[in-house]
Computed example of a mutant assay.
Amino acid sequence: MDVQGTVADGFEPVRDAFAENFARRGERGAALALYLHGRKVADLWGGTKDADGQEPWTRDTAQVVRSATKGVAAAVPLLLHQRGQLDLDARVSRYWPEFKANGKERVLVRHLLSHRAAVPALDTPLTPAQAGDGVSGPEAVAAQAPAWEPGTDHGYHAQTFSWTIGELVRRVTGRTIGRWVAEEIARPLGLGLWIGLPEAERPRVGRIGDVPA
């Protein structure tokens, strides 16, 4: 398999390890960029971006990053705090009054960011359509009772993080988190980064397929 891209002098083993993923571990398509002290030392890609193995992975192929999106989402409240628009030590209900229902009146903004808000999941699951409509998720998590005393323990909010942070950002800025990221982060920095993929960008995206164990 022909690996594309470049590595800086001394980082040839990175290219070798990247190629080994294809040769020995069944990798189908991937990209890797590494920076050291602000300098790009590896920029590699290879394989194919579709499950059928017909379309080559290119320098411009985009990929779903799944839960790594939480890092981008968390940056938005921190930037709003830096700009004086959001107080991390304020109660969430200051910005989102409905959130205080069912014993969550003491939840702070910083608890949402640190997975200590005690609402990691919903008692009543949503349908896929509800989960993505931008309304049902925030409403459900606002009505949810906490699973422990908020702020006293930690639990990964895998299911609800997008709703809590997204709704908080919308209440503070009047913009969806996807629009805020596009206008305030991605566009100024020239990044191919989206929370909510524009239709025009869909052909760039690698389609994830099952990889044999």
Rank of each mutant, 00 (worst) to 15 (best):
L79A: 15
K104I: 00
K104P: 06
Q82I: 01
H81C: 14
A74R: 06
G71D: 04
R110H: 14
L78S: 13
P125T: 11
S93E: 11
A117N: 03
L113Y: 07
K100Q: 15
R116P: 07
P77H: 06
V92I: 02
H115W: 09
P125Q: 12
T69V: 12
L126A: 11
F99P: 07
D87K: 05
H111L: 05
S93V: 01
L79V: 15
F99D: 00
V107M: 09
L80F: 14
L113D: 04
L112N: 05
V76Q: 08
E98C: 10
L112T: 00
H81E: 15
A121N: 03
K70S: 01
P97S: 01
L86H: 03
L122N: 08
L78D: 03
S114D: 04
R106H: 12
R94E: 15
Q82S: 15
L113P: 07
R110M: 01
G71S: 14
V72E: 05
G71F: 10
S114G: 05
A101M: 06
G103T: 06
R83D: 15
L122I: 10
W96V: 09
A74G: 07
T69I: 12
A75Q: 11
V72M: 08
P77D: 04
P120D: 11
L80W: 14
K70V: 03
P77F: 05
A121Q: 12
F99K: 10
V76K: 08
A73T: 02
Q85R: 15
A90K: 07
G103S: 08
D123E: 14
L80D: 12
Y95G: 03
L80K: 13
V72K: 00
A117T: 01
R91G: 15
T69F: 12
R116E: 11
S93M: 06
R83T: 02
A118S: 06
A101V: 07
D89L: 10
H111R: 04
A75C: 14
R91L: 13
A118P: 04
A121I: 00
N102L: 11
V107E: 02
E105Q: 14
L88P: 09
L122P: 08
Q85A: 15
L126I: 05
D89Y: 05
E105N: 11
K70T: 05
V76D: 04
D123Q: 12
F99V: 02
Q82P: 00
A75P: 03
P120R: 03
E98F: 02
G84W: 13
F99H: 00
V92K: 07
R91F: 10
H111N: 13
L112F: 03
A117R: 04
A101R: 13
W96C: 00
P120F: 01
H115S: 04
V92A: 10
A101S: 10
V119Y: 01
L86A: 07
Q82Y: 13
Q82W: 15
K70E: 07
H111C: 08
R110A: 07
D89S: 03
K70L: 05
L80Y: 12
R83F: 06
E98Q: 08
Y95R: 09
A118L: 02
K70Y: 08
L79Q: 15
G84V: 14
Q82V: 01
A101L: 08
V92N: 00
L122W: 11
P97C: 04
V92R: 01
V76P: 09
G103P: 08
F99I: 09
L126G: 03
A74D: 09
H81Q: 15
T124N: 03
K100L: 03
L88G: 11
H81K: 13
A68G: 13
